[in-house]
Computed example of a mutant assay.
Amino acid sequence: MKEITVQELKEMMDSGEDFQLLDVREPHEFEVANINGELIPRNDQPEAGDKIARDKKVVVHCRSGARSGQAIRFWENKYGLDNLYNLKGGILAWSDEIDPSVPKY
């Protein structure tokens, strides 16, 4: 599985790179802390194929990187995608290394 670090994601954001950011946590987690990803909670993931970009890099994140890895494996198998990148360390790493104002929970 392809991964990117929070530093690489920050560079992509700062440079204005065209990519999609997907957040696979649950709505109550998204309310506590988010980095402006499109929310696709677990129950919506099996039918989310039309929400995932095919023509650009897609960064998928969760709290720590485990659930996003599961979502990526599922989507790669179901839809044959090869443009998905797991955010290593998830939103916890983002809070630790990029923006400490993002709450950890």
Results as ranks from 00 to 15, higher is better:
residue 54 R to A: 07
residue 105 Y to M: 12
residue 26 E to V: 02
residue 92 L to S: 07
residue 78 K to G: 03
residue 50 D to M: 10
residue 63 R to E: 03
residue 4 I to W: 00
residue 53 A to Q: 07
residue 78 K to M: 15
residue 95 S to L: 10
residue 51 K to M: 15
residue 32 V to T: 15
residue 41 P to N: 05
residue 87 L to R: 03
residue 34 N to Y: 11
residue 10 K to W: 09
residue 74 F to L: 12
residue 1 M to S: 12
residue 93 A to H: 04
residue 65 G to T: 01
residue 49 G to V: 07
residue 62 C to Y: 00
residue 5 T to H: 11
residue 8 E to P: 09
residue 46 P to R: 14
residue 81 L to M: 14
residue 21 L to P: 07
residue 41 P to C: 05
residue 20 Q to M: 12
residue 83 N to P: 07
residue 83 N to T: 12
residue 19 F to L: 08
residue 44 D to F: 13
residue 35 I to T: 10
residue 71 A to T: 14
residue 99 D to L: 03
residue 86 N to D: 12
residue 10 K to I: 09
residue 27 P to E: 13
residue 31 E to R: 08
residue 41 P to Q: 05
residue 84 L to W: 02
residue 27 P to S: 14
residue 77 N to M: 11
residue 34 N to Q: 13
residue 44 D to A: 14
residue 19 F to D: 09
residue 40 I to T: 06
residue 96 D to R: 15
residue 82 D to I: 00
residue 3 E to S: 06
residue 102 V to G: 10
residue 91 I to C: 04
residue 93 A to E: 04
residue 24 V to S: 03
residue 37 G to M: 11
residue 86 N to V: 02
residue 84 L to A: 05
residue 21 L to S: 09
residue 93 A to F: 08
residue 52 I to E: 12
residue 72 I to P: 02
residue 40 I to W: 09
residue 105 Y to Q: 10
residue 18 D to F: 09
residue 2 K to E: 14
residue 6 V to G: 07
residue 58 V to D: 01
residue 98 I to Q: 05
residue 94 W to R: 09
residue 31 E to G: 11
residue 63 R to C: 01
residue 73 R to H: 15
residue 70 Q to C: 00
residue 83 N to L: 10
residue 7 Q to I: 13
residue 3 E to R: 01
residue 91 I to D: 08
residue 24 V to T: 02
residue 17 E to W: 02
residue 66 A to Y: 05
residue 73 R to T: 11
residue 58 V to W: 00
residue 2 K to A: 13
residue 39 L to H: 10
residue 19 F to Y: 15
residue 62 C to R: 00
residue 62 C to F: 00
residue 58 V to I: 04
residue 49 G to F: 12
residue 28 H to K: 10
residue 74 F to S: 06
residue 89 G to M: 03
residue 12 M to G: 06
residue 103 P to Q: 13
residue 102 V to P: 07
residue 87 L to V: 11
residue 43 N to M: 10
residue 46 P to A: 09
